[in-house]
Structure formats: C-alpha cells, structure tokens
Amino acid sequence: MLENKANPTISKSTGLPRKRFYRARAHSNPLSDSHFPIPISPCQVDYSLHYPQLFPSSDKIDGAKKIQFADVGCGFGGLLISLSTLFPETLMIGMELRDKVTEYVKERILALRVGNPGQYQNISVVRTNSMKYIPNYFEKGQLSKMFFLFPDPHFKEKNHRRRVISTHLLDEYAYCLGVGGIIYTITDVEELGEWMKACLESHPLFEALTKEELEVDPVVKLLTSATEEGQKVARNGGQTFQAVYRRVMPSL
C-alpha cells in the first residue's frame, strides 16, 4: 500500500480507487467482435484468480463451491459490494463489458479486501460480453440469482436487439439459472421497464414473484439503494420500474 500514496487514482482517505480516473463511455456495442480472452467452457474459469483466499490453487476440486450470483452489467459494482456482506458464503461475479469500468471494480474490490481483512473475498468481476458468452462461464442450472440493473435502454427500434433482456437471451439465462432461481431487473426508463416485463411475462420458463415474496426478499430493496445508478435516480427523485421473476420448470 505504500506506493499508493503517490498514486492519485487511489483516494488517500479511504484507500479506494477514485471514480473520476475511470471515466468511460456510457455505452458499449455488444454486437461488435470481442477481443478479450474468454474461457472455452465453464470448467476453465479460474476461480483462484477471482477468489484467491477461497481458492488458493487453480486445481479444480470436485464438489467445490461455484459462482451462484451474476450481476450482468455490474457497472461500478455497488450491488456486488452490498451483496457481499449480506451473503458472505455465496460466490458472486460482476460482468461488465466496458474495460475501464471493470478495472475500477477490480481495484475497488482489492482495496476493500485490504481495508476489511476476511471480507469481500466472495466477490469478483470479469470483463466480458455476457450477451455472447454467458454459457462459457456458467454450467446449466448453476446460478441462483441474476441481476440486470439499469441496463442500457437502447431507445431506437433498430437497436432493440442490443437490449440485454430479450426473449431469445432469456432462453440462455433460463439455462444458467437453476429451477427456483430469480432474475432481478430494474430501470428508470418506463419504456424499457415495460419491455423487460413483457419479455419475462411471455416467457414459458419464468413466473413473476408475488407481492408478498417481493416484500420479504432483502435483495429487492438493494436494487434501488445499492447501485450507483439507483442512487442517482433517487437523488433526482426519479421513478424506477422493476420486474422480478422466478425460473420455473417448463410445463408440458
């Protein structure tokens, strides 16, 4: 940590990375060819790189814990950090397409691990295009929660297929989620909120959570309070639209 004193990208008071040095474009084209490394299959995801304290060696142990929560488009990682202490036994990963933002989250997690020994060992981040490569990271039914918080709205009709929630992509998310797993979506754009709800509602492998179930789920509250985007919306007194659905068995 000593050399960090001279490093302006790390805040002197908190030891955390400063967001202003990780500015990035707000949008990234998910359709373009990716040139970052991608694991060939889920068994090649190196857990020892992501969770070094929990996985000291890169050798695979059968029956070892697997990632259960995926925050797709994790942005600056606010939700992951809140979830980390709420579910300390669960491995979770943030997936972000923008390189600089991923770097920031990586630094943030490392700094949190240093500042709070023993904590934040269960979260990590990876730069990837989840719309293209999600089956390369997770096996069938591996996940129990997936988050899509404040995704890019892609207003133009011609760009609707860049939206991270669509009927066809839900097929892949349903593959990664175990039966009973929950998908959380939220946005401050009414049109996108309706779109996401309509996609989930019409999908045969998803069913809406009831009002009572939403009220008792501690994660639902975090959707608005934990993320940077959610805080921004709350600050400006904006509205949010959420859709929370459960993965169900296909009816025959």
Partner: peptide, 21 residues
C-alpha cells in the same frame, strides 16, 4: 442443443446443453 417442442412456432426456449470445447 435445444429441445424441439411439439409447437416450435412458439419458439424454442429450453436449452438442453452447450457443447463447448
């Protein structure tokens, strides 16, 4: 690998597996 249902016109939603390698 996707399950081909009785009514494929409604779309194929159940993925059986991905063969990756």
């Amino acid at each position: 690998v996707t399950v081909f249902p009785k009514k494929p016109l409604d779309g194929l939603h159940e993925i059986q597996s991905f063969c990756l390698g």
